[in-house]
Design a protein around this nucleic acid. Structure first.
Length: 510
RNA sequence: GGCGAUUUAGUGUAGUGGCCUAGCACGCCGCCCUCUCACGGCGGAAACUCGGGUUCGAGUCCCGGAUUCGCUACCA
């Protein structure tokens, strides 16, 4: 009971780390930190067929970006290594032998073709207690033949011998007791001689035991095989030190049905990966939250709340707050549809809290990408621009659309606005405005506003029409912050230049 | 098909038998603010899967149906 909390995140390097996997990692991390425990990163590369180069680096980089710190792992080291399953072959071989010697497992020679034939012949074929007596394995064949086959280099697998008709209980920390009858379990393959590697199930149990994992926190897709895992702990005689199980609800597609998948991102236009991923084989690029302009904290906060809540209405929480408030009792049991809009809102919130000088750093590459040399402007100028428009952005990249007129004069004028606000007398009024502006000593927002508004009132002009025409010449469209905040930043010369240019270029509607 | 899990507004969720004429947030709509677009403030529409029970009383407990999801590989 008092044992140290040790959790593990155990992804397979078969591609980029999926956002659902990120959430699993996050919950592991939150729990470990809260309990003063250890967070292990184990690479489960027991499927040599599906190995993808670069995937492991991707996992490390993604977790680092999100602030999920690993205590033990391939890079971090630790006393329980190696942390990559392909480097633990000896350990697995030894444990497979233990099971074989104890009669809890057996060797099977059935080829994939033979298994396929068996499945085709029998509607619900399952390699289990009811059928293993008819298959080619060490239970049906004389020992000499088994030895000869192995000596001749025939490929075989080791299967777990599961007794039928037993109710196996799994205690899940968020779902309670789950019972499954062992008859529905098949004799799972534990080890493949072809590549001298165990399958997930065996490696998982052996590693969790040897690494003294206290809590197995993983996705719900593992719930059906949890009883098998319990049986394996029993077979090894490790039942007493078996970890606690926690099966997290899945992240579902926002629209239709099923688990959130790689394709959904492309289809619905939002990332399902933390970082952009370049597929080494197909060359295909999948978008990532980082590259889309998400702040790592926003992603973490958003993900934390997909399947868990703090028990009150708090939504914006720092990593430390998440750590202190996290609990399995407040995890939901059903899958959560991925709500991309809410994700944007979190990013918006975090962007608002970010100091302008930090946003300035992030904005410069965006400016550059839009053909503006950021070095042509003071950092202070950029920061002031940002402070004026940041309330309306969800991403750093939105800053461009909201503030480009601070960096480059309008190239065109919004048609609808022209139609509504530009009229025959406007050029003359704008010329008057230029003179008014030129007569102002203090071009600050408040002073300019007082003078210009006074002039409009004296002349009896229509405030909305004049101001919007003014805005049209300076901004190019009728949007943006307070007009005189814009002109203060732009300065008298630039403001006048733009009005002149507007007078020249804006054509009367019709 | 079998097995398991699951079920509160469009979405994420609060709710642990009376405090629920069901709260919060995203999204949506409206109003206010206002030179514009946003932001912000205020307000609105919108939900307990169905049927039986138990109980003085059920969103909350029990049974059954339905739903959705997952698993059912020599993948994890």
């Amino acid at each position: 009971m008092e044992r140290k909390v040790r959790v593990r995140f155990a992804p397979s390097p078969t591609g980029p780390l999926h956002i659902g996997g990120v959430r699993t990692a996050l919950y592991n991390y939150l729990f470990a930190r809260q309990q003063g425990g250890d967070m292990i990163l184990r690479i489960e590369d027991t499927d040599s067929q599906r190995f993808v180069p670069g995937a492991e680096d991707y996992i490390n980089e993604a977790l680092a970006w999100l602030g999920i710190k690993i205590d033990e792992g391939v890079r971090e080291g630790g006393k329980y290594g190696p942390y990559k399953q392909s480097e633990r072959r000896d350990i697995y071989r030894e444990h497979v032998k233990m099971l074989l010697d104890a009669g809890k497992a057996y060797i099977a020679f059935d080829t994939p073709e033979e298994l396929e034939a068996a499945r085709a012949a029998k509607a619900n074929f399952q390699y289990d207690a009811s059928t293993r007596g008819e298959m080619r394995n060490s239970l049906t064949m004389p020992k000499e033949e088994v030895d000869r086959l192995i000596a001749d280099g025939h490929k075989y697998v080791v299967r777990f011998k599961i007794d039928s008709g037993r109710d196996v209980e799994v205690n899940d920390l968020i779902r309670g007791k789950v019972t499954i009858n062992s008859s529905i379990l098949d004799d799972k393959v534990l080890y493949k001689s072809a590549d001298d590697l165990p399958t997930y199930h065996l490696a998982n149990i052996v590693d969790d035991h040897l690494m003294e994992v206290s809590h197995v926190i993983r996705g719900e897709e593992w719930l059906p095989s949890a009883p098998l895992h319990v049986l394996l702990y029993e077979a090894f005689g490790w039942k007493d030190s078996m970890p606690e199980f926690v099966h997290l609800p899945l992240l579902l597609k926002p629209d239709g049905k099923g688990k959130l998948s790689k394709r959904d991102g492309d289809r619905l236009g939002f990332p399902v990966f933390p970082l952009e991923w370049h597929d080494p084989k197909s060359g295909e690029i999948s978008s990532g939250y980082r590259e889309k302009g998400y702040l790592p904290h926003a992603v973490v906060n958003f993900l934390a709340l997909l399947g868990w809540n703090p028990g009150d209405d708090t939504e914006i929480m720092s990593m430390d707050e998440l750590i202190s408030k996290f609990s399995f009792a407040h995890c939901s049991r059903s899958g959560a549809k991925f709500d991309f809009e809410k994700g944007k809102w979190f990013n918006h919130k975090y962007l608002q809290e970010m100091p302008d000088n930090e946003l300035t750093v992030l904005y410069k590459p965006v400016l550059e990408a839009n053909g503006v040399d950021p070095n042509a402007f003071d950092d202070d100028y950029i920061a002031r621009v940002i402070s004026l428009v940041k309330g309306r952005i969800n991403f750093v990249s939105d800053l461009w659309d909201q503030s480009k007129y601070f960096f480059t004069e309008p190239e065109s004028y919004d048609e609808k606005a022209v139609k509504k606000r530009w009229s025959a007398e406007m050029p003359a009024i704008m010329k008057e405005l230029i003179e008014v502006l030129k007569g102002i000593d203090d071009f600050s927002s408040a002073a300019t506003e007082a003078i210009v508004l006074g002039w409009i009132a004296d002349k009896g002009y229509h405030l909305g029409n004049v101001m919007n025409a003014f805005r049209l010449t300076v901004v190019g469209e009728c949007k943006g912050p307070h007009m005189f905040d814009i002109t203060e930043l732009l300065g008298l010369d630039e403001t006048v230049r733009r009005i002149e240019r507007g007078i020249e270029r804006i054509k009367l509607p019709e």
